[in-house]
Design a protein around this nucleic acid. Sequence first.
DNA 1: TTGTAAGCGTTATCAC
DNA 2: GTGATAACGCTTACAA
Lengths: 334, 334
Amino acid sequence: MNIYDIAKLAGVSIATVSRVVNNSPNVSERTKQRVLAVMEEHHYTPNVFARGLGLDSMKTIGIVCPDVRDAYVAGLVASLEGRLREYGYDCILYCSGYKKEKKEQAVELILQKRIDALVLAGSTYAGGGLQKKETDYIRQAAAQVPVFVMNGRIDGENIYCVYSSDYQATYETASAMIESGRSKILFLTDSHSYSANKKLEGYEAALRDHGLPVLGSRKLYTKNQVHYVRDILLARKDLDFDSVLATDDGLAVGAVKYAHARRLQIPKDLCIVGYNNSELAVCCEPELSSIDNFAQELCGMVIDEMMGLLREETTPPAHKEVACHLVKRCSTDF
Amino acid sequence: MNIYDIAKLAGVSIATVSRVVNNSPNVSERTKQRVLAVMEEHHYTPNVFARGLGLDSMKTIGIVCPDVRDAYVAGLVASLEGRLREYGYDCILYCSGYKKEKKEQAVELILQKRIDALVLAGSTYAGGGLQKKETDYIRQAAAQVPVFVMNGRIDGENIYCVYSSDYQATYETASAMIESGRSKILFLTDSHSYSANKKLEGYEAALRDHGLPVLGSRKLYTKNQVHYVRDILLARKDLDFDSVLATDDGLAVGAVKYAHARRLQIPKDLCIVGYNNSELAVCCEPELSSIDNFAQELCGMVIDEMMGLLREETTPPAHKEVACHLVKRCSTDF
DNA sequence: TTGTAAGCGTTATCAC
DNA sequence: GTGATAACGCTTACAA
């Protein structure tokens, strides 16, 4: 069933059918109803490829993320997808992994599908931030379609960044820890991404502003796996800390397990703060205080900006920040 | 840059360019190189819409899942997506939720994108199993494209089901529990899906085969939220159980929290088994024994079958089952 | 080995 | 209001 068949059956031209399909006002009510009836009867759906060819758009947004199995990322994808549906858009999902070449390949391949916009859902795409060249592939992509970067900051034409105020969050949390008597905060992370770096900066600034030393030995990069973190902490006897600020709940749970293994009391002997306020925070014992970065709001902003842009109504700001805040549970005492 | 431009620049016809693009053997090495060079130089990429229009395929697979935030579902989506990329396919993701109308709408809308095949990634699509009419929309979809159902069993032309042996898994686990001295196993679930029902059947069969009563009061339907489960268990003083068999790790963690609140020893006073062997299993204290259902293998089978079918090499079996097995940790003593 | 030309199913620009 | 008709950019017989 194509537009010709419908036209024939309804006794009109394909132009008229097209008008009906697209809700054009220039069709008499009578013909419209007639065409609609035929369409209904034969379950006609316009061919999206043909339409795409003509309009150069299939109303599809590309979402590139490092890994949907990551709870935080999954939350982003779910929110984005849901909001996009409201506007009649579909999403193509690409899980790129964390390696540079794979990320570049992901962007290249997804662009070939002629998506209307691209979302990079994860701080990993912004890179460490030092080498501008590292993010050139994103600027190239932006030459073709608008690019929305979540939790990263990349400067360039047609690139729009939305991120959480991670610096502020860790600054405030670390400060609160220090003011409640902790002086040896271990910063635990699994990444050199843009947001991980911001978190680190906030943590270090808090130390400095409170007259505490910033030590390399209070900064640990590790894999984001509960047992792995626990074992690393047990093995690294040189580390000396009375509290932990982790950039992900999984890491923080690793610290909880470490405390159990060493029979340390939480929070008395070890105060622990996680990040992302995920399901994990509430599974361990005691339950984790965790920084919530309002992923949903972040996604909402991205979609609002995107729709404004695609409708040519508004031009989004190049950067926008969303506040985080600490959700206190039982792993802290401040 | 379209095929005409490339043809002109390379001094050949568009047919030749098309041949080169599609790796047709009927092109001399010389022309091929020439065309390739021009394509390279101008970063030419064929227009997928035009190609789609001609071939009636854009090499896209539709994945409908209830919710990517669910860890199990996220695992499915990640595996499917990764495998599909290997074959040069893209995925359109649709999160449908668990409501019937939404699921039907999801399938309807995603079919309009003229996907090459549809994957229903989640037991919820198979329905409770009693009403055949409930899954009619899936049979309708199968009239258009091959449909692959994960963790469900739906009979129909062009529908291919792959599922875990949930019956066997709960039968064996419940049997082991009973044989180790537990006689009051609480079955904890959040769903009436196909696989939840299979799990229930396995559990009940084990009870029966060991001469134990099958009691309605040993079967609890609840929300899959840690604190919610804990509070329900605390409130339901009428429930009498010495062990828990849950259909998801989240539920099992709720039982762990309940045990803590009641100061029950795990596994001594309460033996707990979770399902899906997720990250959660390893976050709580003590860590959960959990049934692993090998989601990756399930996905691998789906993709293998799908590719065989799309290449018209093989016709998949209508049903295929993958074994599960229990991963023992510290919440059990058998 | 290469080129010509006919689809594929829309949308959009004209006339009428 | 409605109807021809030309794009849109590709694949693929069929000819040469």
